[in-house]
């Protein structure tokens, strides 16, 4: 076996001159990060379900007396986020079509929906009447809902950055990787709301 060689010798000239392949690394990384986020979030829910089952097995109620979680707000929050999934993918579609105006509009509406979700959650906190200091169950509730709020804010920041880059002309029909990544993260965030909606707001 030869001990030394010139590395250029092993590279065909035609390939060496070709531009490097540019795989969708940001999409891959975002998908993996979204999966990690989902696992953490589902893990929190499993603790919630296990604690709830243990308490119900003793014959006690799960929620403390006087605490009420209405369904109206969670349902509308879910609808709001579901609409935002449509608009965030509209942003992807518009970017793929080099329609920058529609792309920016879609980002803006998605962010508006997300802001509405944050506002509705804040309102829900005020009417749930469960004090985090008063009961350990509140830790689970606020821990899970708060984690989802953080995820929503992260998705909003991601979308804002990608919207600005789209405005700046970084993304277009040839390269819309960042917008697609933001949409993937956003969709995962909304899917996690679906889990939370069923486990916390429906089954309570």
């Amino acid at each position: 076996m030869a001990v030394t060689t010139t590395p250029h010798d092993v590279i065909p000239a035609s390939y060496a001159e070709a531009p490097p392949a540019r795989p969708r690394l940001l999409v891959l990384a975002t998908s993996l990060a979204s999966a990690a986020m989902a696992m953490g979030f589902i893990g929190l829910h499993s603790v919630y379900i296990a604690d709830r089952a243990d308490r119900l097995a003793t014959g006690e109620r799960w929620l403390p007396d006087g605490v009420n979680i209405p369904l109206t707000q969670p349902n509308f929050m879910g609808l709001t986020l579901a609409f935002s999934v449509v608009t965030i993918w509209w942003a992807v579609s518009a970017t793929r079509s080099d329609d920058r105006a529609n792309s920016v509009l879609a980002f803006a509406i998605s962010l508006l929906f997300a802001f509405a979700y944050l506002a509705q959650t804040a309102y829900l906190f005020t009417i749930m009447e469960i004090e985090i200091l008063a009961d350990e169950r509140a830790v689970l509730l606020y821990g899970i809902i708060g984690t989802h709020l953080v995820m929503a804010v992260a998705a909003m920041v991601f979308a804002i950055v990608m919207a600005l880059r789209t405005i700046g002309g970084d993304y277009n029909s040839r390269d819309y990787e960042g917008v697609l990544s933001a949409a993937i993260f956003w969709t995962m965030m909304v899917a996690m709301y679906g889990v939370m909606w069923y486990v916390i707001y429906i089954t309570k």
Partner: peptide, 10 residues
């Protein structure tokens, strides 16, 4: 990626 976030949740 799939298991350590569970510990972080705890």
């Amino acid at each position: 990626i799939f298991s350590l976030p569970i510990v972080m949740g705890e």
